[in-house]
């Protein structure tokens, strides 16, 4: 069954977005991308250290993937806009994940600055996917200023703690017409599947895959979990009941009625 996710005019057939940070080595990245099936891959921008130049990460992203640079390192809207424009100048295309963080302990996003950056970049032709704390009013505002999706966190970045913000994400999915993509905190394929069963449009995973014992195998596991979760959502999960409801007939074997 064809069930594409359409963002920024692009049809996506994989609902797993993959981050490229923290892999044990860059050579593993193309294998992980392929194993996961991801079509959207995030990257970051940093000042060059001329003493220790790094390899160009783009060389490790399979052709045909959509590159989504993030604005990590930005502490306000102005810096996020600057990073986004630089990434576009570097040939990354026009997708951008807005990430504005001024809190070092929990790396929670600054929703207010994120809205400002989203408005400016959407007006400048970017496909903007803002990373936010799940808040309905913020999500509505983001929709109003031209975001292509909203990306609420499940738990703090890199924490592998799963859908701690489950209830707030559920409300966003119910109330917002934009795709809701759960970003950050997903630590296990089961948690990714749960987000998809709830009706999330996609999930973005980095740490859980990159720091797994076998990142490529974990990428594959996440790909399957996301597909399973999406299929379950489309199938319509049965209702939760307080008491047992027999799956087999209880009458008609030895007695007609209890």
């Amino acid at each position: 069954m064809s069930d594409p996710l359409i963002i920024g005019g692009q049809k996506l057939f994989s609902r797993l977005f993959l981050g490229t940070g923290k892999f044990p080595n860059n050579k593993m990245i193309p294998e992980a991308v392929t194993a996961s099936g991801a079509q959207v891959v995030t990257i970051a921008l940093r000042r060059v250290d001329p003493e220790f130049p790094e390899e160009n990460i783009v060389n490790f992203v399979p052709k045909g993937c959509i590159l989504m640079p993030n604005t990590s390192g930005a502490r306000n809207a102005r810096e996020a806009v600057r990073i986004a424009r630089m990434a576009r100048a570097a040939g990354c295309g026009n997708w951008v994940k807005i990430e504005v963080i001024a809190d070092n302990r929990y790396l929670l996003p600054d929703n207010y600055e994120t809205i400002k950056a989203t408005e400016e970049l959407a007006a400048d032709g970017f496909v903007v996917l803002p990373y936010v704390s799940p808040d309905l009013m913020v999500a509505r505002k983001l929709a109003e200023v031209g975001a292509a999706a909203v990306m609420p966190l499940g738990a703090p970045i890199g924490s592998n703690r799963g859908l701690q913000t489950r209830e707030l994400i559920r409300i966003l999915i119910e109330e917002i017409s934009l795709p809701v993509i759960v970003d950050a905190g997903i630590g296990r394929p089961s948690q990714a599947a749960e987000a998809m069963e709830m009706g999330a449009a996609a999930v973005l995973v980095n740490t859980a895959i990159a720091t797994a014992g076998d990142p490529v195998a974990m990428a594959r596991a996440f790909g399957r979990a996301v597909e399973a979760g999406r299929a379950a959502f489309l199938a319509g999960p049965g209702e939760v009941q307080r008491y047992a409801r027999a799956s087999s007939p209880l009458t008609g074997f030895l007695r007609d009625e209890d």
Binding site: G19, T20, F23, R47, V48, N56, I57, N70
Partner: peptide
């Protein structure tokens, strides 16, 4: 002068 490059990130 500021010089940047693309690196891995999530």
């Amino acid at each position: 002068i500021e010089i940047f490059q693309l690196v891995g990130g999530g």
